[in-house]
Amino acid sequence: MSSDFYKISILPFAGIIIKLCRAYTNSQQDFEDYYQEVCLQIWRSKDNFREESQWSTWVYRISLNVCLTLLKKKKNNVQHFVSDSVTVEETEDNYAFSDESLNLLYDAIRKLSEIDRAIIMLYLEEKSQKEIAEIIGTNPNNIGVRVKRIKIRLKKILDGKIN
């Protein structure tokens, strides 16, 4: 990979990669590891990009796959080494954004299922239903309904009605 590849093909999408990685991690160290792994996987898989979709869609899809894979690995490790009563979701969030409302929103997002987290973030990033479906690998018709349900759930979490 040339530094040009990073600058041209990854850096313009760093924002969404960062947002995605933050939703699946609970510490700065994990976040940096996830970000790095995403960049590495984008670089490794660049030759497989067939231009059937937009480059940005490809980047989002890889980012999401990497985050989900790493999260699964981490959960397995935690289950091996930590008592059953402590899960990844419950570990302390020792890093945060400067905006307090955003932190609360992120905490709420982290309480969603893994796929719901991806859907709501892509929705918040103003991706079309078609593009979200393409990234997630599902039917675009379901996305609208699912986003509504996720928003209701998020609202309830933020209002403290559910944990």
Partner: peptide, 8 residues
């Protein structure tokens, strides 16, 4: 939130 912060 993202407009204000340097978190990205």
């Amino acid at each position: 939130g993202f407009l204000k912060s340097d978190d990205l």
